Simulated scan of single mutants.
Amino acid sequence: MAKRAEVTKTKRPVRRRLAGRWKLEDAKARFSEVVRHAREEGPQRVSVRGHDAVVVMSVEEFERLTPGKPRAPFVEFMESLHLGGLDLDREADRGRDVEL
């Protein structure tokens, strides 16, 4: 009886990475894993040609870092400028006389 050649799936070599750091090509290929790590472990850096380019982070981390302060309504903003001493009166300008 002839031996059957074993068919094995060749796995793509897994590149070692520093915790929280990804090369762009790896991050693209394993984006769901990058997102999972960002949610569970914290922000994940993605590098392009060896230089950090972007950070992937959870929405909770993003909101913590960018507190949304309410913007003042326009009238309150203008009143906060304290322009009371500024003379804003104009002379009545009726234009010039033009013959048609």
Rank of each mutant, 00 (worst) to 15 (best):
M1R: 13
A2G: 07
K3Q: 11
K3V: 14
K3R: 12
A5G: 12
E6I: 15
V7A: 15
T8L: 15
T10A: 15
K11R: 12
V14T: 14
R15F: 06
R16T: 11
L18K: 09
G20Q: 01
K23Q: 11
E25M: 01
D26Y: 08
D26P: 05
K28P: 00
A29T: 02
A29R: 14
F31Y: 14
F31G: 06
F31R: 05
F31Q: 04
S32G: 07
V34I: 06
V35A: 14
R36K: 15
H37R: 13
R39W: 00
E40R: 06
G42M: 02
G42V: 00
Q44C: 04
R45V: 07
R45K: 11
R45N: 07
V46Q: 02
V46M: 02
S47E: 15
V48E: 12
V48Y: 15
R49A: 15
H51W: 00
H51V: 13
D52C: 03
D52P: 14
V54L: 05
V59S: 05
E60P: 00
E60F: 03
F62A: 02
E63W: 01
R64E: 07
R64W: 04
L65D: 06
L65K: 08
L65H: 03
P67G: 02
G68F: 05
K69D: 07
K69N: 04
K69C: 06
K69E: 07
R71D: 09
P73E: 13
P73H: 12
F74N: 06
V75H: 08
F77W: 10
F77D: 08
M78N: 05
E79G: 08
E79A: 10
S80E: 10
S80D: 12
S80W: 02
H82M: 07
G85D: 12
G85S: 14
L86N: 03
L86T: 06
L86E: 08
L86V: 13
L86I: 13
L86P: 02
D89I: 07
E91G: 12
E91T: 05
E91A: 14
A92H: 10
D93H: 09
R94Q: 09
R94T: 11
G95E: 06
R96W: 03
V98R: 05
V98F: 11
